[in-house]
Design a protein around this nucleic acid. Sequence first.
RNA 1: GGCUCCAUCGUCUAACGGCUAGGACAUAGCCUUCUCAAGGCUAAGAUAGGGGUUCGAUUCCCCUUGGAGCUACCA
Length: 477
Amino acid sequence: MPEKPNESVRVRIAPSPTGDLHVGTARAALFNELFASHHGDNGSFIIRVEDTDFERSKPEFEENILEGLRWLGLNWQEGPDVGGLYGPYRQSERVAEHQKVVQELLDKKLAYFCEGNHGENKCDCRQKNLTSGAVRLIVESKEVTFEDLVRGTVKVHTDSFGGDFVVARAVDNPLYHLAVVYDDEAMQITHVIRGEDHIHNTIKHILIQEALGYTRPIYAHLPLLLDDNRKKLSKRNKETSLLAYRDMGYLPQTMMNYLALLGWNNGDDREYYTHDELAQAFTIERVQKAGAIFSIVKLASMNKHYLSELSDEELFAWAKAYYDKNGIEIQEPERLLQALKTELGRFASYDIGGTPLHEAMAWHASDWATDYSDVSLTFRQKPDTQTPEIKKSTQAIISELSSIISTIPEGEWTAKHLEEFLINWIDSNQKGRGEYLWPLRVALTGREHSPTPFAVAEAIGKSDVLRRLQDARDSLK
RNA sequence: GGCUCCAUCGUCUAACGGCUAGGACAUAGCCUUCUCAAGGCUAAGAUAGGGGUUCGAUUCCCCUUGGAGCUACCA
């Protein structure tokens, strides 16, 4: 019996538009969204763009972030693109309010102006009574404790980070810590679910909240996504842009499912979930504490699974996105779709063992041709071991195939029937299956590794099959 | 260095003191087979180490070791 949610929860993701949407940010967004969705109508997921770093923030990054979150399949109730009652949802548009807060801290003598860079050293600006400069919050020497939903009690002494810290470059130029605290209060955020790398920031945030008399949200720090060296996932070692994975051929349902399972599980062996199933099952109590390596291998296997579940329309759209992106025109959409279906289960992305999708699919074209020089048309032979005698016998086999295949009526031209017919013919004539099926398959695809000739034959049609057999035969002369 | 967090197969993880530590991915083998996949079966593979508490620790506590994160007038 699932518990009935009764209290409203408001959570947010606060990406900073200083780069493409990072998979780690996407996962944090997903966990927030699942948490909100789990609470149904009582849950709100909010996007707030933290663009107070004017130097590095760029509109195109904001667009990339929103596009990525949309692509992933997340739903948000409030954000810069959809608005909401607690807007604006871009921090740069909220500086006037932040400025008031900075002034308030100053007026209440909870903060003071400070000049110069003080680094590690304790600064003495507090005694100087300056009237401009950076604004530093007064922090008393004490232990700060908070309850983390994932980690339990976290305790940090304010001395460990030097006490007083800067909350604004100037009265009208607030820093991240202050902006976050004010905005979370103003937007009535109930739960702050973010990466573990924010744990120390949380202490500072609590200090600001206490100074201002704000409500402390409930914190949950997620384990980090790691690279193969167990370091925080970064662009140095691995592709970190979510949409780059889309462009490699990973499906949004794959990414969502995989990301959800990185640091969360339902306590059983289940691995495949839809968004709604995840939302139904998701609880922060089941979030892992240890960091998790982002593994492309597992991602690929999951993508294979989801690819095989696609409808014809979805599969075609998946391929079309690749062709469009690479500026390749699809001449014969129906034939391409049929070809894709034969290859399904053999690829996990747009890259098939080093071969790009359009090359692997080249055989679908009705005018496809190859010189067969890199492959052997003869079973159990390499291209360079084909003596004239071997070539001759392969020619004979191909001729035989052509004549029996030409007897199959168009109405019975299906992979299933072709298989029954050809296997039966081969077996009843005491021939070797490989002897015949290998040359047939290579003649149709030009590849030593490919789908079965029956499926390929159905996809390209009878006349094309006969033409390719002829071409293959001619190549052996 | 200081502060904080973390620790089950190679990887993601299950087992909220009690069956032989389970599953998935990856790996290997076998079956199937025209190839590569897929599929089926099987194998190998983990509780970091040491102390406690307990009738009994993967599980609770401590120490050690190891790893990670943070350590900005970035976010």
